[in-house]
C-alpha cells in the first residue's frame, strides 16, 4: 500500500509554490496507491501550470487521469470514487470554472457524510488556483471562496507559502472530508521558501503569525499575505509595527488566533481579493465582534476587491488590493484616536 521514502528528517529545499505542490502530489501518490489525480490537462500535459508535471509518467494513466472538459463530472465522479474507496485529488483548472461544478461541490460532496449519516464520506481534495494579477481571460481570476465558505461540510484552505502548501496539501489528501485547496495563481512561481523534503503536515484550521508587530494586525490569506508583508515593510519605515496573521485555513477558522492578535494589537485590517460585500473578511470581522469587541481600539477596516465583477486586464491593477491601499487602511486605523 505505501512506499516510504528515506529522507533525512531535517532536509529541506527552496521551492516555489508549484514545485511544492508537485513534490507533495508525488509523495502522497507514492505513499498511498488509492490516491488518484484527475482533471483537465493534468496528465500528459502535466497541468496548464505544470502542477501535476511528471505524475503521469510515474504513476500512469490509470491514476493520473485527463478528464473530459466537464467540471461537474470531475467532482461528481470523485464523489463516487471516494465512496468506492479511492482518494481523488481533483483539479478545477481555475476557481472561476467551479461554478460549473457548484452543485456537485456544495450540493453533493459537502453533504455526502451528513446525508448518509457517515455511511459514505467524500474524501476528496479539490485543488484550484484563484486570484488575479496575471492578465488572464475572464473568469480565470475570480476569488469566490466565500461562496464555498457558506457550505457546511466543506473545508477550505488557502496557503500563502510553499512550505504550507506542502504541509496543508498532504494533510488535505489524508483528511476524511472534502477539502477545497486554493492555490494563489499569482504566487505560483513568485512565492518561494524552504520546504521540508520529508513528512510535513500542517493541521488544517491553524493560522500562522507571519511577522510580529504590536500596533496593528493585518489579517490575510493566500496571495494577500504577500501584499500585507510588503505593506508592513513600508509601514515599518514610518514607525508602524504591523503584525501579519495568515489565516491559512478559511474553514475551519482559527478563531483563537484571531482573538489573540486582536487582544495584542487592538487595531485590525483585513485584506481580501474578493468583492467587499459578503467576502470572507466580513466573517472575520463578525468573529472579532463575537470574541474581542472590547479589545478593539478602532473600527476594523477591510481592504477588498470592489463590488464589480472581476475586470479585464487593463483594469485589474485597480481592482485587486495592492500595497498602497493596505498601507492607507493601516494608517487610518492606527491614526484613529
Amino acid at each position: 500500500m505505501s512506499h516510504v521514502e528515506e529522507i533525512p528528517d531535517d532536509a529541506s529545499q527552496e521551492m516555489n509554490m508549484l514545485e511544492a505542490i508537485n513534490h507533495t502530489l508525488h509523495q502522497e501518490m507514492r505513499r498511498d496507491e488509492r490516491v488518484m489525480v484527475l482533471g483537465e490537462d493534468v496528465g500528459h500535459n502535466g497541468g496548464v501550470f505544470r502542477a501535476t508535471d511528471g505524475l503521469h509518467t510515474e504513476f500512469g494513466g490509470d491514476r493520473v487521469v485527463d478528464t473530459p472538459l466537464a467540471e461537474a463530472v470531475i467532482v461528481g465522479t470523485s464523489v463516487g470514487l471516494a465512496a468506492a474507496g479511492q482518494i481523488p485529488v481533483a483539479e478545477i483548472q481555475f476557481l472561476g470554472f467551479a461554478y460549473q461544478a457548484m452543485h456537485q461541490i456544495a450540493g453533493q460532496a459537502a453533504r455526502l457524510r451528513f446525508r448518509t449519516r457517515g455511511r459514505f464520506q467524500a474524501r476528496i481534495t479539490i485543488r484550484s488556483p484563484f486570484g488575479g494579477g496575471v492578465r488572464t481571460p475572464e473568469l480565470h481570476s475570480d476569488s469566490i471562496l466565500s461562496q464555498f465558505a457558506n457550505v457546511p461540510g466543506l473545508k477550505i484552505v488557502a496557503p500563502s507559502s510553499a512550505s504550507d502548501a506542502k504541509g496543508m496539501l498532504a494533510t488535505a489528501i489524508r483528511d476524511p472530508d472534502p477539502v477545497l485547496f486554493l492555490e494563489p495563481l499569482r504566487g505560483y512561481r513568485m512565492i518561494k521558501d524552504e520546504v521540508p523534503l520529508g513528512e510535513h503536515l500542517v493541521e488544517l484550521g491553524k493560522a500562522r503569525t507571519v511577522s510580529d508587530g504590536s500596533d496593528v494586525v493585518i489579517i490575510a490569506w493566500s496571495y494577500m499575505v504577500d501584499v500585507a508583508m510588503r505593506a508592513a515593510t513600508e509601514l515599518a519605515n514610518e514607525g508602524i509595527s504591523a503584525r501579519i496573521v495568515d489565516l491559512r485555513s478559511i474553514v475551519p477558522l482559527d478563531t483563537e488566533a484571531i482573538a489573540q492578535a486582536v487582544e495584542d494589537c487592538g487595531r485590525v485590517v483585513v485584506v481580501q481579493e474578493a468583492p467587499e460585500t459578503n467576502g470572507f473578511a466580513s466573517e472575520v470581522i463578525a468573529t472579532i465582534n463575537d470574541t474581542s469587541f472590547y479589545s478593539l481600539e478602532a473600527p476594523v477596516e477591510r481592504v477588498s476587491g470592489w463590488d464589480a465583477p472581476y475586470p479585464t486586464g487593463q483594469l485589474e491593477d485597480f481592482y485587486v488590493p495592492d500595497v498602497g491601499r493596505v498601507v492607507a487602511a493601516v494608517r487610518r486605523v492606527v491614526e484613529t484616536p
Binding site: 461537474a72 463530472v73 461528481g76 465522479t77 470523485s78 464523489v79 463516487g80
Partner: peptide, 10 residues
C-alpha cells in the same frame, strides 16, 4: 449519475 460512474470506475 456522476456518482454511479465514479463508483463503477473505482
Amino acid at each position: 449519475v456522476p456518482h454511479a460512474v465514479g463508483m463503477a470506475w473505482g
